[in-house]
Amino acid sequence: MPHDPFSLTALGGAALAVPILVWYLVRRPPLVRTTKIVLLFGIGVFPIVTAGSGNIAGFEATKTRRFCGSCHVMTPYAQDSGDPTSETLASRHGRNAAFGKDNCYACHADYGMFGTVTTKIGGMRHVYHYVTHYHDVPVAEALPTIEIRRPFRNEACTRCHSTGVPGWNEIGDHASLIEELRAGQVSCVSSGCHGPAHPFSKVGRDPARTFRDHVGRAP
């Protein structure tokens, strides 16, 4: 049962609208002024409240780890990042209170003014690939083949771990690779540095292989 105010508002609006609509459909009252006003609330006001708050609740729900892990091939990723005993990069970030239950979205969302929109469009692509390819693939079979659609961008890291602060530059590898890191030529989550974030999915994998190699078509 959801506890956030938007979900509760959506459910409350629906709970108010449904009796009105059922009453109208069952009793079939004459269309007098009172009926019209009641129907305005049943078809207009309460459903609009439900749709508005339900949309916000839905958008918020798409950010959660539970949502990401609801596709069965993503379950190991979600379980690991929510595991307090795990030492993976994803789990360590998941234990950060600023990320919390939204830790998948916090790292994988695009940055910038339209980051949310482009992230949602990318999410729709994920759903498309899930429905068309991975829906019937067992987890054990899917795990070695699933690839991120685009290489993980360093901007996702540097929006928190700024390359401009002195502490970051005091580390020798950072200072020597700063230009390559900013240009995206070297990845923060490469195996020689801080990653991979989900190492269990990279065991025995050829890093040169891509999604196209596994699936046989461009993502």
Partner: peptide, 16 residues
């Protein structure tokens, strides 16, 4: 409207 409300309530109760 009832159908639309049902879909919305479903999405709120089961956000998958």
């Amino acid at each position: 409207t009832l159908l639309a409300l049902a879909l919305m309530v479903w999405s709120v109760l089961q956000p998958t």
